[in-house]
Design a protein around this nucleic acid. Structure first.
Lengths: 340, 340
DNA sequence: AGCGTCAGCTTAATCGTATAAGTAAATTCA
DNA sequence: TGAATTTACTTATACGATTAAGCTGACGCT
């Protein structure tokens, strides 16, 4: 059983001191310069032969930096988070850092996650935004860890955030529908106790005002963001005496349910009712008619988040900052112009 | 700026030695017993106040175990891998380990990934199977790291694998179609130079033999697994003089393309042609008609992989083992019985 | 020749923990 | 009662790196 090699082993083989090996592998030019080019060559040659690279744990313990980024994802099953995960991973790799993924929630779970981030001495954390439990917040304080939240609408003191102008996007969506000739535009919201659902709802209302279209309570329903009920709500809406002719739904999951429920009930989309969603999940391209949606800038968000994080890790101590990104309406068949 | 607390700080506050703190936090009962219950109480009390937990880096460097599992995913955009990621994360968490995700490929990329896994002294690695480059294989040897590959059909010496009986599932799929009354069953394969595409193709052939149905070269086409061409291939197949009445496609991505292309060209599914896929991606439930597919046991695969890995990490030194899991046909509307 | 400078090393301290070995007091036992 | 054992610690070393400080020989300069 071949033991894992250390700097001391390499040093012995090359005939130099352990410190020389360390200097040779140093990433800082001023330290590297302390070793002659040819000695470094010899060190690298032997290192390559035996597959040596400096132990990151030992490095971390000395330097206080681990090169680790924690990424917390509320829910692995949801492909919405995939883009952010990918972006984080990419940018982290570009900066020579590695990503530790945490998932799952629950109060005790969250506390364990934060403890683990602390014990592992991660250099920073990116959290896909979610309301945190009170005790979690306290643990966060003790960690004094650079943190950036992404994609939510919740802010914390001293925690940078990358947010999406979802409200503005929903306003744009209503204007898009208005431009296509729809005039009686309804809404299925998420749970209105959450900030994101409120934001989208307000954007919808603003859109109506901007387009000078009427708002009717009867054209709106409150959903849950999750799968299960949106189909029934859509049928309720279309079966009333004076139904809406378009439906802005708070996310794609619900929008697709609504679309399929209407389709399966024999209605024609968008002729009987246009439908739009939000998140631009892969399924949106596959349903017929294709679902008009809102694309949130997952990759760009991850990039911004990493930039903020790297600045904090670089010693920036200022107040919490917020970066706003625009979301984009992706028009598809479920909202094409009415051929009057 | 509150400095991060160490065992020494806690010890000083409590009035004991640093070793006492270490023993108090030890996970091994025989070490814990070295400290009286009341002293441990006092230590924990102070630790909680200041938010102390032992530094995982220092622990790792002393014990040689990091509690880190590396997870390599070829492609973050593909939701097929999501189930395996989630499973790995869950089981790892259950065992008190954390997951380091690596992505991206390319020869130099792969070498960096393996180097990083080595430097970080991960305890084991799970790799969603992919052919590895030759040099990567060499680096793997140098690391002497417990590794398990998942979901591929490639095996390496001394590397455990969790594989799926895809061939058998494709055979079952043909039998399912036969049972529904289809008799002229065609196939769109993946790139037949890959082992998985071969396996699926062979399963399809075996299914035909088992069902005593004819095989015709003219009913088969070779695709690429990726998006882009399967739609055209499906149209080619259906437009010939004596077309197949059912089409077993090598994965859902291509199957959905085929289904949509036929649908958009005015054909009716499954009346004009039944279509089936493989992977059971979320989109399969959303297309109309819903796509019959094959569900690969992503979560169970992750569990098996972690079990194998934990055994290796526990010191098992035996030969490479292989765990075979069954995939399951999920019948949906795209292959319902012909109403003759 | 004598002295300072510098390149190119080595030596040694340090990071935060685990743990073997040592020690003093309390307890057990013959 | 005195020796042996046990309990509950402390002391000291090691893990594998970084890095400040010390050392040596070669070189340049006057």
């Amino acid at each position: 059983m071949k033991r894992i090699q250390t700097a001391k082993d390499i040093a012995a083989r090359v005939g130099v001191s352990q410190a020389a090996v360390s200097y040779a592998f140093s990433s800082r030019p001023e330290k590297q310069a302390l070793i002659s080019a040819e000695t470094r060559e010899r060190i690298f040659k032997v290192a390559k032969e035996v597959g040596y690279f400096p132990n990151a744990l030992a490095q971390g313990i000395r330097t206080g930096k681990t090169g680790l980024i924690a990424l917390w994802v509320p829910n692995f099953s949801n492909s919405v988070y995939l883009r952010t995960m990918r972006g984080t991973q990419e940018v982290a790799t570009q900066h020579g850092m590695d990503v530790l993924v945490y998932g799952g929630s629950g109060s005790s779970g969250m506390e364990n996650v934060l403890r683990s981030m602390g014990q592992r001495r991660v250099d920073g954390a990116i959290m896909i935004a979610r309301p945190l439990e009170a005790n979690a917040n306290q643990v966060l304080g003790q960690l004094e860890l650079p943190i950036v939240t992404v994609g939510g609408s919740i802010t914390y003191p001293n925690v940078d955030s990358v947010l999406t102008r979802n409200g503005a996007a929903f306003k744009q969506m209503v204007l898009h529908l208005a431009a296509q000739g729809y005039t009686r535009i309804g809404h299925i919201s998420g749970n209105l106790e959450t900030a994101t659902a409120q934001e989208r709802y307000q954007g919808y209302r603003q859109g109506l005002r901007a387009a000078k279209l009427p708002f009717r309570q009867a054209w709106t329903r409150q959903g849950t963001y999750k799968a299960g009920s949106a189909g029934a709500l859509a049928l309720e809406l279309i079966r009333q005496k004076n139904p809406p002719d378009a439906l802005v739904v708070a996310n794609d999951l619900m929008a697709i349910e609504a679309l399929l429920a209407l389709h399966d009930a024999g209605y024609s989309i968008p002729k009987d009712m246009a439908i739009t969603g939000c998140d631009d999940i892969p399924e949106a391209e596959v349903v017929r008619p294709r679902l008009t949606s809102i694309r949130r800038p997952g990759l760009r968000a991850a990039h911004s988040a990493m930039t903020l994080l790297l600045e904090r890790m670089g010693g920036y101590q200022g107040q919490a900052r917020t970066v706003w990104l625009d979301a984009e309406v992706i028009p598809r068949e479920s909202s094409v112009a009415l051929s009057l």
